[in-house]
Amino acid sequence: MDLFVSESAPIDSSLDCPTLSADTLKQLNTRSTAQGTLRLALHLLILLSSGYLWSTNIGEHWPIALPALVIYGFSLAAMFAPVHECSHRTVFANNTLNDAVGWIAGVLSFYNITFFRRYHKWHHRYTQDPDKDPEMSDPKLQTWGDYLLAMSGLPWWWGKLTTHFRVAMGQLDSYPFIPETAREEVIRSTRWQLGVYAIAIGISIIFGQPWFITYWLLPLFIGQPILRFILLAEHTGCSGDRNPYTNTRSTLTLLPVRLLMWNMPFHAEHHLYPSIPFYQLPIAHQQLKAHFSHVEPGYIHVNRAIVAGLNSAV
Rank of each mutant, 00 (worst) to 15 (best):
W103C: 05
P130M: 12
W62C: 07
N94W: 06
Q142G: 07
L141T: 06
T56A: 14
H123D: 11
P67S: 08
L66A: 15
G51I: 10
H88W: 00
R118Y: 14
W103T: 14
R118A: 13
S75I: 06
T143G: 10
G170V: 10
V83A: 01
T96H: 13
W54K: 06
I46D: 05
G153P: 01
Q142I: 08
D138F: 13
F92V: 08
W144D: 06
A93Y: 03
A81N: 04
Q142M: 10
S152M: 04
F92K: 05
D133Y: 10
F92A: 07
R89F: 08
K121R: 15
Y111H: 11
Y52K: 13
A81M: 05
W103S: 11
C86H: 01
S174M: 10
L76A: 09
H123S: 10
A93S: 15
N95C: 10
T56D: 12
F110N: 02
F116N: 00
T114C: 04
D99T: 12
D129V: 03
L44W: 13
I46T: 13
I46M: 11
A81S: 15
H61E: 11
F116A: 02
G73K: 05
T96M: 10
N112F: 05
G153N: 01
P155K: 00
L172R: 09
L172Y: 08
F110P: 00
L48I: 14
L53C: 12
D138S: 14
A68H: 07
H124G: 08
A93D: 13
I64P: 03
H124V: 08
A77K: 03
L45D: 10
L97Q: 13
L48T: 13
W62P: 06
F116D: 01
V83T: 03
W103P: 04
L48P: 04
L48K: 08
T143M: 11
D99G: 06
D173R: 15
H123V: 08
I104A: 12
M169P: 06
V167S: 09
L172W: 08
